[in-house]
């Protein structure tokens, strides 16, 4: 019995890796999608955008890279579609160097569908180095933080969208960040929310989501937490956007995979603890 418990506790971790791999591959192949009931944080995120006046200017900050794209890119895509569909004007910035290739590609896909013009309805300013300092500079004045746009390399004065933008977030109605860590939502709250009183929305990774509850609903009007939040938001926005149908279904499939992966992890924790207590009782009796 003792040997059996020790052997079970010394289980080669590659068996666990194999079980996880099989679980994910099989469930993905089965392709069962699961709908998620929308929570208040996601609904607030969606409603805040819906309640903006048409033509409002939104600063959209891509603060992520490919490592967190599985969680954040679907939210980012859906946010772009909701903003453009509602006729918002978008200034696109990034504080992570690996984000701009995503941002430009997504805008170039979505903008023609809503007949949006570059420089009038959206503009791509690209990566700004400096973390919090860069955020402070963007907050102080977008037009002095960036000399030129990132797509065409033209001075910002050439773009009509900046005619309505002043210093200290003047003219900008909303700040949205897709945040994977540092710098991200917490730094934007400190640099922009607290200082210029601009409403902020965020999409975040699972690791960062628990940090956000302390800021909701005053400093943060709404947020999308991890793949779950992304799925809920896609269900809201994707309902009448055919271009988001595929990504919505993919995310819904991911939710069921996540269910089983979570159940497996909980099962492993229980199993590990049972073995631990059996071993402890055995030692006490010896």
């Amino acid at each position: 019995m003792a040997k059996r418990t020790d052997k079970a506790l010394d289980l080669d971790r590659r068996w666990i890796f194999l079980v996880i791999a099989i679980l994910v591959v099989v469930l993905y192949a089965l392709g069962i999608a699961a709908e998620m009931p929308v929570n208040q944080y996601v609904q607030s995120y969606y409603d805040t955008i819906e309640e903006l006046d048409e033509g409002s200017i939104v600063l959209l900050s891509a603060d992520f890279d490919p490592a967190s794209a599985a969680e954040l890119l679907p939210m980012y895509q859906a946010t772009i579609y909701q903003l453009l569909k509602r006729n918002m004007r978008v200034i696109n910035v990034a504080t992570w160097p690996a984000a701009p290739p995503y941002t430009r590609e997504e805008f170039e896909k979505a903008a023609p569908l809503y007949k949006k013009k570059y420089g009038v309805d959206w503009v791509e300013l690209g990566f700004k180095p400096g973390d919090d300092v860069a955020m402070g500079q963007i907050g102080q004045s977008v037009t002095s933080a960036y000399i030129q746009d990132d797509r065409d390399g033209k001075p910002l004065a050439d773009f009509p969208i900046f005619k309505d933008v002043g210093n200290s977030f003047e003219g900008i109605s909303l700040l949205i960040t897709m945040s994977a860590g540092y710098p991200g939502i917490l730094e934007w709250i400190a640099q922009a929310g607290g200082r210029y009183d601009v409403p902020i929305l965020a999409g975040t990774t699972a690791v960062q989501t628990p940090d956000l509850f302390a800021y909701y609903p005053t400093q943060l009007k709404g947020f999308l937490g991890a793949a779950t939040g992304a799925t809920m938001y896609l269900q809201l926005v994707g309902a009448d956007v055919p271009q988001l149908e595929e990504v919505t279904i993919t995310n819904q499939k991911r939710m069921l995979i996540q269910t089983w992966a979570h159940l497996l992890i909980i099962g492993l924790i229980i199993y590990g603890n049972v073995l631990y207590f059996v071993g402890r009782r055995r030692e006490a009796n010896a």
Binding site: L11, I16, F17, I20, V24, A67, Y271, G272, N273
Partner: peptide, 23 residues
Amino acid sequence: LQATMFSLLAFYIASAAFRAFRA
């Protein structure tokens, strides 16, 4: 490459859950 590195976390978390999370 970066997405793969991050995805490996799922495997390590499952393994760590079994080995380290004790009541």
